[in-house]
Simulated scan of single mutants.
Amino acid sequence: MLEKDHHPLLLEVKSVTLAEDGVAYFPDAVTARGTRHVQKLADIQEAGTHEAAVLFVVQRGDVKNVRPATHIDPKFSAALQQAATRGVQMLAMTTDVDLHGVTLGSRRIPVFFN
Score class of each variant (00 low, 15 high):
Leu2Trp: 11
Glu3Gly: 05
Lys4Leu: 01
Lys4Asp: 05
Asp5Ser: 08
Asp5Thr: 00
His7Gly: 00
His7Leu: 06
Pro8Thr: 08
Pro8Arg: 04
Leu9Ser: 03
Leu9Tyr: 07
Leu10Gly: 02
Leu11Tyr: 01
Glu12Phe: 00
Lys14His: 03
Ser15Ala: 15
Val16His: 01
Val16Asp: 00
Val16Cys: 06
Thr17Asp: 09
Ala19Val: 08
Glu20Ile: 11
Glu20Met: 11
Glu20Cys: 15
Asp21Gly: 06
Gly22His: 06
Ala24Val: 03
Ala24His: 07
Tyr25Gln: 05
Tyr25Ile: 02
Tyr25Gly: 01
Tyr25Met: 15
Phe26Asn: 09
Asp28Gln: 10
Asp28Phe: 06
Ala29Phe: 07
Ala29Met: 03
Thr31His: 01
Ala32Trp: 09
Ala32Pro: 00
Ala32Gln: 02
Arg33Ala: 04
Arg33Ser: 08
Arg33Glu: 06
Gly34Ser: 10
Thr35Lys: 05
His37Ala: 14
His37Cys: 00
Val38Glu: 04
Val38Thr: 06
Gln39Cys: 07
Gln39Trp: 05
Ala42Pro: 10
Ala42Phe: 09
Asp43Gly: 03
Asp43Gln: 10
Gln45His: 06
Glu46Gly: 04
Gly48Asn: 06
Gly48Pro: 00
Gly48Asp: 09
Thr49His: 07
Glu51Phe: 04
Ala52Met: 02
Ala52Lys: 01
Ala53Gln: 07
Ala53Arg: 00
Val54Glu: 00
Val54Leu: 07
Val54Gly: 02
Val54Thr: 01
Val54Tyr: 03
Leu55Asp: 11
Leu55Trp: 02
Leu55Lys: 10
Leu55Met: 14
Phe56Asn: 03
Phe56Cys: 11
Phe56Trp: 15
Val58Thr: 06
Gln59Thr: 11
Gln59Glu: 14
Arg60Met: 12
Arg60Gln: 07
Gly61Met: 15
Asp62Val: 12
Asp62Glu: 11
Val63Thr: 09
Val63Tyr: 09
Val63Asn: 11
Lys64Cys: 09
Asn65Ala: 13
Asn65Met: 14
Asn65Lys: 14
Val66Ile: 11
Val66Tyr: 09
Arg67Lys: 15
Arg67Phe: 12
Arg67Tyr: 05
Pro68Ile: 02
Pro68Leu: 10
Ile72Val: 15
Asp73Leu: 05
Asp73His: 03
Ser77Ala: 14
Ser77Trp: 00
Ala78Phe: 04
Ala78Trp: 01
Ala78Val: 05
Ala79Trp: 01
Ala79Cys: 09
Gln81Tyr: 10
Gln82Arg: 13
Ala83Thr: 05
Ala83Pro: 05
Ala84Leu: 06
Ala84Ser: 10
Val88Ala: 01
Val88Gly: 00
Gln89His: 02
Met90His: 02
Leu91Trp: 12
Ala92Ser: 09
Ala92Leu: 01
Met93Glu: 10
Asp96Met: 12
Val97Leu: 03
Val97Cys: 09
Asp98Glu: 14
Leu99Asn: 15
Leu99Gly: 09
His100Leu: 12
His100Cys: 07
His100Trp: 13
Gly101Ser: 10
Val102Ile: 07
Val102Cys: 13
Thr103Glu: 12
Leu104Trp: 09
Gly105Glu: 13
Gly105Ala: 14
Gly105Trp: 05
Ser106Lys: 13
Arg107Asn: 06
Arg107Ser: 05
Arg107Ile: 03
Arg108Ser: 09
Arg108Ile: 13
Ile109Ser: 10
Ile109Gly: 12
Ile109Val: 08
Pro110Glu: 13
Val111Glu: 03
Val111His: 07
Phe113Arg: 09
Asn114Gly: 13
Asn114Val: 14
Asn114Ser: 15
